[in-house]
C-alpha cells in the first residue's frame, strides 16, 4: 500500500498537479468515461481511427502507457482530424488535468 501511494505522489509531482486532483484518481476514470469514453472506448470512433493510424496496440487510450500529459492537453484543446476541440466550458482545465493524470497514471493497464 505504502509503495503504491509513493508512486502516486511521484506521478503527481512529475506532472505538476495539485494533490487535490491526484486524490481524485477514481474521478479520473469516471471523468474520462464521461468526456472521452464515448469515442475512446472499444467501439468508439477515436479507437477505430487510432487503430488505423497507429495499430491495434495503440488504439485504446486507456490501455496505453506512452501518453504524456502535455500531448493530451494539446489534443483536447486543438483537436486532431476527426476529434473536435473541447472548450473550457465543456471541459474546464481542472477536469482536463484529472483526465490527463488518469491516462498517465502508473500501474497496470486494462
Amino acid at each position: 500500500m505504502r509503495a503504491m501511494n509513493l508512486v502516486a505522489v511521484a506521478a503527481v509531482l512529475m506532472s505538476g498537479l495539485s494533490t487535490a486532483a491526484a486524490a481524485a484518481e477514481p474521478d479520473g476514470k469516471a471523468l474520462y468515461a464521461r468526456r472521452c469514453g464515448i469515442c475512446h472506448f472499444a467501439d468508439g470512433g477515436g479507437t477505430w481511427m487510432l487503430e488505423r493510424r497507429l495499430g491495434k496496440s495503440q488504439a485504446l487510450l486507456e490501455s496505453r502507457a506512452d501518453l504524456q500529459a502535455p500531448y493530451i492537453r494539446l489534443i483536447a484543446r486543438r483537436g486532431l482530424n476527426g476529434m473536435p476541440r473541447f472548450t473550457r466550458v465543456e471541459l474546464p482545465d481542472s477536469d482536463l488535468e484529472i483526465i490527463a493524470a488518469y491516462l498517465t497514471r502508473s500501474g497496470p493497464r486494462p
Partner: peptide, 15 residues
C-alpha cells in the same frame, strides 16, 4: 451514440 462521427475519416486526413 456518436459513432457517426467516423464519417469524417473517409478520406483519412482532416475531414
Amino acid at each position: 451514440v456518436v459513432t457517426r462521427l467516423k464519417v469524417l475519416n473517409w478520406f483519412g486526413g482532416r475531414g
